[in-house]
Deep mutational scan, measured.
Amino acid sequence: LEELEQFARTFKQRRIKLGFTQGDVGLAMGKLYGNDFSQTTISRFEALNLSFKNMCKLKPLLEKWLNDAE
């Protein structure tokens, strides 16, 4: 759980530094990986307001997006 919290904080910082909005991330993930995510989902991930199971599902996709975006 602590690792997920740390990743969520780091993800938000890096996303902002790269100049992407939460909506940009959701749209890009849909185009790149075929998984559409709303701005609300990205927001809830960053705020740790998703279930642990959903956080675990999203983490690898967000890590991949972040690596591809950098």
Rank of each mutant, 00 (worst) to 15 (best):
K12R: 05
K31H: 06
L61E: 08
R44G: 14
S38F: 04
G30S: 15
T21P: 02
K64V: 10
K12L: 04
E70C: 07
K17N: 14
I16E: 15
E5D: 10
Q6C: 03
Q39R: 12
I16H: 05
R44W: 03
D68Y: 08
R14S: 13
M55N: 02
L18I: 07
I16F: 05
M55K: 01
L58C: 09
E2K: 12
Q6K: 15
T41Y: 08
A47M: 11
L48C: 15
A47V: 06
Q6Y: 09
L66S: 03
L27A: 15
T10S: 12
I42A: 01
K31R: 13
T41E: 11
A69S: 10
T21A: 05
I42D: 01
L50C: 08
Y33F: 09
P60I: 15
R9Y: 07
E5H: 15
E46L: 00
R44E: 15
L66F: 03
L18E: 03
D68G: 09
L61P: 11
N35W: 12
L66Y: 10
P60V: 11
F45A: 01
L27H: 10
T41R: 04
I16M: 09
K64Q: 14
R14M: 09
R9D: 08
R44D: 09
S38H: 04
K53F: 10
F20H: 11
K64I: 05
D36H: 13
G19N: 12
K17G: 11
L58M: 13
K53A: 13
D36N: 09
T10M: 13
T21S: 10
I16Q: 12
G19W: 00
D68K: 12
C56E: 13
L50F: 09
M29K: 00
Q22E: 12
F11M: 05
V25Y: 00
S51N: 11
L27R: 13
A8V: 09
E46T: 01
R44C: 09
E70S: 15
N54H: 15
F52Y: 07
Q6W: 07
F7S: 03
E2W: 15
N49L: 11
L50A: 07
W65R: 01
D68N: 14
L1R: 05
S43Q: 15
L66R: 01
S43Y: 09
M29H: 01
L48K: 15
I16Y: 04
D24F: 05
L18D: 01
Q6S: 13
E3M: 02
G26M: 06
L61S: 11
F20E: 02
N49R: 10
F20Y: 06
D68I: 04
L58N: 04
F20K: 13
S51T: 13
A47Q: 14
F7P: 00
T40C: 11
Q22N: 02
E46A: 01
F37R: 02
E2H: 02
F52M: 07
Y33P: 09
L1G: 14
L50I: 11
L27Q: 14
T10H: 12
P60G: 12
Q13K: 11
L50P: 01
L50W: 04
A47S: 15
V25T: 03
S51H: 10
Q13R: 10
L66I: 14
L18A: 12
F7A: 06
L4V: 08
W65Y: 06
G19Q: 02
Q22F: 07
L62R: 00
M55V: 05
E46V: 01
S43W: 10
Y33Q: 08
R15K: 00
L18P: 00
Q22C: 13
I42K: 00
Q22H: 09
L4C: 01
T40H: 05
E2D: 15
L4E: 02
K31S: 11
F7D: 01
G26W: 12
K31A: 12
R15M: 00
K31T: 11
Y33G: 10
G19D: 05
L32R: 12
E46D: 00
I42V: 11
V25R: 01
S43I: 12
Y33S: 11
L4D: 01
S43N: 10
F20D: 00
Q6N: 05
N54I: 03
A69F: 04
F45I: 02
R44A: 15
K57E: 10
G23K: 14
L61R: 11
K12A: 03
N35G: 15
K57Q: 12
D36R: 11
E3Y: 06
L27T: 07
A28M: 10
R9S: 10
I16A: 07
F45G: 00
K53R: 12
D24S: 07
M55R: 02
L32K: 14
K12G: 02
K59M: 09
Q6T: 13
A47Y: 03
F11G: 01
Q39F: 12
L50Y: 05
R44T: 12
G30N: 14
T21K: 05
M29E: 00
C56V: 11
F7Q: 01
Q6V: 10
S43E: 12
I16L: 10
E3F: 04
G34C: 05
Y33D: 11
K57F: 11
K53W: 08
L66E: 02
K57P: 02
G30Y: 10
V25W: 01
D36E: 12
L1F: 11
W65E: 00
I42L: 08
T10L: 12
G30F: 13
Q13W: 05
E70R: 05
G23L: 12
L62P: 00
E70I: 04
K64L: 10
R14A: 09
L32C: 08
P60K: 03
L48V: 14
R44L: 12
T10Y: 12
K59Y: 15
E70P: 03
L48Y: 03
N49E: 15
Y33W: 07
K17L: 13
K31N: 05
G30R: 09
K64G: 11
T10N: 14
K12E: 05
N35C: 11
P60Q: 07
G34I: 03
V25F: 02
G23Q: 08
E46Y: 00
N35V: 07
A28I: 05
F45Y: 05
L32T: 08
F11V: 03
I16C: 05
E46R: 00
S43K: 15
R14G: 12
E3P: 01
A28F: 11
Q6G: 10
L4I: 14
T21N: 12
W65V: 04
L62I: 14
Y33M: 09
K57A: 09
F11S: 03
T21W: 01
G19H: 07
F11W: 04
G26R: 05
S51M: 03
F52L: 12
G23C: 11
A47F: 05
Q22Y: 02
K57I: 05
A28Q: 15
E3H: 13
M29A: 06
L4K: 01
K59T: 05
K57V: 07
F45S: 00
F37W: 13
D24G: 06
E2G: 10
L58K: 07
G30I: 08
D68P: 03
M29R: 01
G19R: 06
G26P: 03
L62G: 01
A69R: 13
N54G: 12
P60Y: 02
T21C: 04
G26D: 15
R15H: 00
E2Q: 05
E2S: 09
L62C: 07
K17H: 04
Y33A: 09
G23T: 07
L66A: 13
